[in-house]
Design a protein around this nucleic acid. Structure first.
Lengths: 203, 203
DNA sequence: TCATTGTATATGTCTTCACATATACTTGTG
DNA sequence: CACAAGTATATGTGAAGACATATACAATGA
């Protein structure tokens, strides 16, 4: 299970509660490569404890609910290292948007361009967030910092290339529509896509 | 549900059995944007029938198991069009490989380079398959054919850009390793990545 | 003062997906 | 002739993920 190993990874860096894993790790650090909801994190922690990969001790608090601090065990570290060195199969290609596009031939011109433009703007937003994260990222030259930056770079490169593809698609579709109902002379076409903005969001 | 809508899309093009959906559509046509196993397809068809989006009639066969041919209903067509025009949320960023990379700081140099190289070779293989599919693709200029090619292009552009990123990562990591234990003079380093081959597989 | 936000864990339930197995007959291959 | 592969549908089971809700108290703010 990938989530279990992500949790082991964070706990190897520092002992933490489920709440901290959720708010500090998965909602920020891991945001660009793995997301998980709270319920899943708590249940995965239970499973890891049963398998002996983590241990927990409860810290009493008066004014707050008790904290259950999880630590990784030697067996957990071993499992993490073993898993990290084993090539993972490629994640399956599975994108609802491409289903929509594949079967969009009965959509109106407006609807067709709309879903593509919406997708572009959502992607640009994602890229903006990633760029902001990259900007605030520590500038370390250690293995750890470099690895960290590399994963951010993967997500950014992915978003960037998707946006470029979307712009190409938008142009292809505009040409097609233009060709199907030629614009009357003097009428300015508004269908053409703006090219990718290298510097930031256009939305 | 995305799978249900993909099925509606294929059935809108032609009435079919679950078996044909699996072998002809999902194992080939939809391979690059949605995969589904047989059990899931059959169960989703049941659900679609209950909701009135498809109907089925059984064709007796003497020498073979009976065929249950599914057809899309007007309600199904309506549902498909409605869904296709509704912008879908971005699929979550979730890649086990990036978890591995993020927590790979304790891996040996060999293991680290190995998982990245394996990933590159798997991606190149995926790209080769996509290119082969694109080559055998019909060359139509109709909306349908263009949409079809566009989805293939999305998958190819994704694979292509991922490979480029992996090559960059490989170089970054090689530099890092080189820097951590400098090569003795006269010793040829084998750590550097080959640049992306524009024409095909290097694996 | 009342409502919201933050800290903290836990459970219930549903959907989607993955993997295995059962059944049954035919055709093609070694 | 035996065995594998192809045609065809169906069920069982479990893991993973999504979403909702319960509990409990403190601090902050309108």
């Amino acid at each position: 299970m990938s989530l279990a190993h992500a949790i082991l990874g964070f706990l190897r860096e520092q002992a933490m509660t489920g709440y901290e894993l959720k708010t500090l790790c998965f909602d920020h650090d891991a945001q660009h490569f793995w997301t998980a909801d709270q319920a899943q994190i708590y249940r995965t922690l239970e499973g890891l404890e049963k398998r002996g990969h983590v241990t927990s001790r409860v810290k009493r608090q008066r004014s707050r609910p008790d904290r259950k601090v999880y630590s990784i065990t030697p067996a957990g570290v071993e499992e993490l290292d073993r898993w990290a060195a084993t090539p993972a199969p490629l994640p399956p290609l599975r994108d609802p948007f491409l289903i929509q596009l594949r079967f969009a031939d009965r959509l109106s011109d407006e609807d067709l361009l709309h879903i593509v433009r919406e997708r572009r703007s959502a992607m640009q937003q994602r890229l903006d967030i990633l760029r902001a994260r990259a900007a605030e990222e520590a500038k370390g030259a250690g293995r750890d910092a470099i690895l960290h930056r590399l994963t951010l770079g993967a997500a950014m490169s992915d978003a960037r290339s998707t946006i470029d593809w979307l712009d190409g698609a938008l142009e292809t579709l505009s040409d097609l529509i233009e060709q199907e109902h030629p614009t009357e002379p003097g009428t300015q076409s508004r269908l053409f896509a703006r090219r990718t903005d290298e510097r930031g969001s256009t939305s």
